[in-house]
Design a protein around this nucleic acid. Sequence first.
DNA 1: CTGCACACCCACACACCAC
DNA 2: AGTGGTGTGTGGGTGTGCA
Length: 726
Amino acid sequence: MSEHDDFDSPLTNNFVDAAAEISTTSDSQLQDSKEDKKQNGIFQDLGFYVAQDDARQELEHLIETHGGSVLKELPSGNSSKEYVVSPSNTADLSTVHPDYIRNCCANNVLMRLSGYLVPFSDFHADTQGGDSGDDRIDPRVGNNSGASVNSTKETEQTNFGNTGREQGTSTSPASSSRAVGASSTEQPSEQKERPEGNRQVTNSLSPDPAASVMVSEQSTAQSAAEIAAEKSKTVPKNEPGKERYVPAHNKANFTAEEDNFILDVVRKNPSRRTTHTLFDEISRFVPAHTGNSIRHRYRVYLAKRLDYVYEVDSQGRLVRDENGALIKTTVLPKALKKKFVAEEDYDLAISIKRQFYQDVYQIDPDTRKSLISEDDAPNEAAKRALTMDANVEPGAEPSLGDFRVGERRGPVPREFFKIFAQNHPTHTENAWRDRFRKFLLSYGIDKYIDYYEHELAQDRTPEAMKNFTNRLKRSGAPTPGNYSGLPKKPKTSKDENLPQYLTSRAQQAAALVAASGRGVDLNSSALGMGDMDLLDEETLNFISGLRRDLSKIESAGGTAFEYPQEIAESIRNDFANEETQFDNIDPDTVSFPPPIASSDLFMPQFFAFKSTREFLDKINDIISRDYEASQAEKLVQDLCEEAGVRKTFSTGILTALSGDLMVFPRYFLCMFSMNANPPLTVPGIWTRDDDEMLKQGDDNSLKALTEKHGIGRIEMRRRFIASDLV
DNA sequence: CTGCACACCCACACACCAC
DNA sequence: AGTGGTGTGTGGGTGTGCA
């Protein structure tokens, strides 16, 4: 089974395979071993020497209250259970960052050391100015974002008492053999790639639409810079998670960030953990590696570190708790395909045999009562005549056990497989039918039943049927699973413009959706956004970071965007005329939270508002602030933090609004009151159909669009589309 | 010689279609 | 409606070549 390679490490032994044990248990923190640690304190048997004066009291208190012992002297270095606690490691001893202690205690879990080990540094990192942006210590470690948060922290390291490699890499300078991909986040605080000189907004309420489309990456840079500024005093400069592994050759090595990104995506797509396509899709965001290599990387190295996945429903979609948070679980969901086992083959064979028995003798094999009824429809009687053996005297029928199927191959009604699949849901109706056709018929129904029963009688374990698929090899087509020789292809039809597949947020959204494995239309990124959330904010930010680097290479990335004065004027006029109809809806008539407000669009903060009015007041408050074009990312950040609008959603809205902030409150008001996302008939809110009509450009379409949006907005939208921002 | 990235393999589960 | 043909890509690998 595929799960085996997921469970190689002791750290993953707590996983439960949903395929083997149907269980809905989802609390990964309730693993037995960890439970024991909690009983006795998570740091039981571990000793720490706190080498940070300003936080010594706090850290020592945390260590002691969680079962650890506080060392009064530096550890000898001979014990794998003694650690220095310090943001820097100048003594070449196993050293953990103070945040490790804090985060473990905050979560009451002995977390893995990965990413918290401070590498030995025999040179003064502090003298290396300008890279403080690397130091993204995220206090949210341990919450549902933990996976991606860890992505800035984790390294190859997995276990306590195993620090060799970490320290080995620490003194190596970052490799220069790197391709564009993951190097981006090595410089998260850089803003230089977006010169602002040629950007302009229509008015103070309407930021640069291009900027609005790029908000997610900008917000990454912004927040990273802010975090870095806050943390730069206490965090080691050469933080291990940012460093490349020791390069072994000129193939692109996997960085810790790439590794953690891969793990994060797998955690969010656990049903697809063994597929080739998932890794092929991941490779679109990790340009330095092929799908094959990422898949291999995961199977051989990363699966050991999976630790947990996020709970998904039967469709493989992420499930969230009442607070909108993803739910960690150690129960791996079923994979997409499941091998047939001997018992299933036997069940199928027996059921087919019964079916044939009834067809031939028209009696129930158990009760031996006749299945023929006076009330049978003519077609049933006709069917019966085809299958029935008229030469057998009623009452002379053999028992089911004595009955031999012989050469009989059918007919088997479709209904049979339908019902069989209902009773045996381990495989689909099609799969059962195919198993019957390709395997059972080839092997022989009687023969397999005899074999199975004989093996059991001999106290042996029967095997499933195999080696009956001798189909001719396909010519020309790439070998299944080999994606390496092909360009990294988009999955959606909208994504045809490679290699510029990451040059706009909308395309990014499409790729994200593709990565999530759902065929959601690109434009739904401004609609539901739910499936996009399979990769959440942090993942999106990571990807955005990759894109930031790509954009440096792709000069097309920074198209200047200006609105002539007359367009801005026209839009303002239209807006004023629309106010009575679309902006004067009394928010107090809209119940809160509105049914359309799902947790994949809004954060828990949103649901803490008491009324629609209160929420809209906050929205108005935020958008009334003086955001420069270059601060669109700040806007999205503020909307997220203060109003609980997910960044992906607000970014999508800004796209639908062509970046016109004035329409923002209208969007929510209409969305809530019309219970539609997006609201379909509202000026300034561009739907997919609107965009299609604009692209077609016939007179009727333009007339309708002019009536809905006004001439100014049409011009604005054209620029939006021309700039590939929709 | 070894470890790693990446290529490649292939049986077959699951699907859909045409007749 | 039952059947055969066959496409697709999963699931679990192994092979290759570089440093």
